[in-house]
């Protein structure tokens, strides 16, 4: 069936709500599809307002209450239509949910999935544009999942909700209109078994990217194919806990590493990937120094010309690839 990433996420919700009576969805804007693109359309009408719960403007209480319900048999999905609003609930996510299992001796697990949606561009400015996945990937105990493909958007969301740990599932609205043909949902994936995925095979350079930056890299590689570049693209998918085997093997093969991320530079996932790979390989196997591409280290601006400067462009990726290979 033809899906966009948006309808794939909707399909994941339906699968979960159909098969797991303990799943409910909680957050702002759930009775108005506008807030979350096509990812929740009509869910309240199909499953009722008891299971699709729109909320007051109270991120902390809603997130915390979902954690609480998860400790007593439910599998809530919390929706923060914008990651910037989710930040209010960081104590509940980072200091409560992520610590819960360890600090109680592994006896209690918040089975909560939090959809943190990245929604940026369109001159929305500094407070409506953040993509803070690197922050959260820093936290032991919090699984961080970032789908790129339409299929992953559906299947990793299902895996996240069925995983007994707290999961931050980060979507980028810039991916919502991507299309793909999907088979019906099969046997659910086990989140703990998931790792990065080689989207395109190549021999001269490894690009590691995630979410929207992975789509950008894919477009660039498709353009460059005509010029006979052979580039391998790895979609990170799971930012925490991070598995390195595929990444390391790829860089061993190509000898070149370009790490791309749609977040900021310092202490970010792009740098983490470079560190994690290079400490696992012999330096002599690198043909050139690794490079990272990220956003400009500044709050997001509003006006269009500055937005164009701020966000990572495909042109910049192409130039970097050519520099590394020539």
């Amino acid at each position: 069936m033809k899906h966009t990433q948006g309808t794939a996420i909707l399909a994941a919700h339906k699968y979960l709500l159909d098969n797991y009576p303990e799943v409910f969805v909680f957050g702002q804007g759930l009775w108005s599809p506008w807030y979350v693109g096509s990812t929740m359309t009509d869910l309240d009408k199909i499953y009722g307002k008891d299971r699709i719960i729109d909320s007051p403007v109270s991120e902390v209480a809603v997130t915390g209450a979902a954690i609480g319900a998860s400790l007593y048999g439910y599998k809530p999905i919390v929706v923060h239509p914008r990651m910037d609003f989710m930040i209010l609930a960081v104590d509940q996510i980072v200091t409560q949910a992520a610590k819960w299992s360890s600090m109680f001796g592994g006896q209690s697990h918040p089975n909560i999935t939090i959809r943190g949606i990245v929604n940026r561009g369109g001159e929305q400015g500094a407070q409506h544009s953040q993509s803070l996945h690197s922050w959260f990937a820093h936290i032991p105990g919090l699984r961080v999942v970032m789908p790129t493909t339409v299929k992953d958007a559906r299947d990793l969301l299902i895996a996240s909700v069925l995983c007994p740990d707290p999961v931050l599932f980060i979507e980028d609205r810039w991916l919502y209109d991507e299309e793909d043909e999907l088979d019906p949902v099969g046997e659910p994936l086990v989140l703990n078994d998931q790792e990065s995925n080689i989207l395109i095979e190549g021999s001269d350079l490894t690009i590691v990217a995630n979410s929207f930056s992975c789509l950008q890299a894919k477009r660039v590689i498709e353009q460059l194919e005509r010029e006979n570049y052979s580039i391998e693209l790895i979609d990170l998918r799971i930012l925490n806990p991070l598995k390195y085997d595929k990444l390391v093997n790829s860089v061993k093969k190509t000898g070149r590493l370009l790490s791309i991320d749609g977040g900021w530079t310092t202490c970010g996932v792009a740098g983490e990937i470079i560190a994690g790979i290079t400490e696992r390989i012999d330096p002599s196997s690198l043909k050139t120094r690794p490079v990272r591409l990220t956003l400009t280290d500044a709050p997001a601006p509003t006006s269009k010309p500055l937005e164009n400067e701020y966000y990572l462009s495909e042109e910049k990726i192409i130039n970097t690839i050519k520099d590394m290979l020539n």
């Binding site: 403007v57 001159e123 929305q124 400015g125 509003t302 006006s303």
Partner: peptide
Amino acid sequence: GKLDGCSKGMGGSMHLYDPSIGFGGSVPIV
């Protein structure tokens, strides 16, 4: 988003600022 804006075009409608009139700032995080 123009340079002559009250936030120099860096904020847009949701981030206004003008201390000369006593306006200390408006931000869209509720």
